[in-house]
């Protein structure tokens, strides 16, 4: 039965699609994977999927879209029996889609830029997570630090702020500020198929952690 992984964040441009596409590519090496782009018409993940198909690299991966939460739940229902993983790229707002993702997902990843402003912007989403937990207490939401630059704020201070203010767990692996993420996305590739070894390694670490969390 498919393990559903949602990528949620209310702030735009924080790296949801980057996370969703790279994760989907990595998980498709393990088993049948579907990436559902829930942020149409922008459709970054769907565009990436189109390029990937053109490059003949889809393999075990299927890329599809969902216009709204009803369609999303419908597709998840259809796919859950045949897939090993379903990765969902959500919209930059607390829409119904984000809400169904919180409930359906075995693991929700929340990309966050390493800045106090972004930590603060995530407050509304945290309230929604709490509301979702009242329905489903086992919901597992974890921060993924993105565009992490060691010198902006110390790692310790930031993760303390997140624990104190957002009350969320975080993944240990952090994604740095690397051109490779944009380069790979624009070519339908994952960073593990691109030339930046550091990006490859850090994302590999994240994938290992995701798999451990799903086990």
């Amino acid at each position: 039965m498919a393990k559903i992984i949602g990528v949620v964040q209310v702030k735009g441009g924080v790296g949801r699609s980057t996370l969703a596409t790279n994760l989907a590519a990595a998980l498709s090496l393990e088993g049948a994977t579907t990436l559902i782009d829930g942020d149409v018409p922008q459709g970054t993940s769907a565009s990436w999927g189109a390029l990937r198909r053109e490059a003949g690299r889809l393999g075990n991966l299927t890329v599809t879209t969902a216009q709204d939460h009803v369609e999303l739940v419908h597709k998840a229902r259809q796919l859950v029996g045949s897939q090993d993983y379903i990765v969902i790229d959500g919209p930059p707002r607390i829409a119904e889609i984000t809400k169904v993702m919180l409930i359906m997902s075995r693991l929700c990843l929340l990309p966050l830029g390493a800045s106090a402003a972004e930590v603060w912007a995530t407050g509304d989403l945290v309230q929604t997570v709490e509301a979702a937990r009242r329905r489903r207490p086992e919901i597992d939401v974890r921060i993924v630090w993105n565009r992490f630059r060691e010198h902006t704020r110390s790692a310790r201070e930031l993760s303390e702020a997140v624990h104190a203010q957002l009350g969320l767990e975080e993944m240990q692996a952090r994604l740095g500020y690397r051109v490779a993420y944009g380069e790979a996305l624009g070519r339908g590739l994952s960073v593990s198929e691109w030339t930046d070894r550091l990006a490859r390694d850090e994302f590999g670490g994240l994938v290992a952690e995701v798999k451990a969390a799903l086990a």
Binding site: H69, V70, V73, A76, R77, E96, I97, K99, V100, M101, L102, I103, M104, A131, A132, R135, R136
Partner: peptide, 9 residues
């Protein structure tokens, strides 16, 4: 879970 998701939405 799917029903719950729709209800939460």
């Amino acid at each position: 879970v799917f029903e719950e998701a729709l209800a939460f939405a």
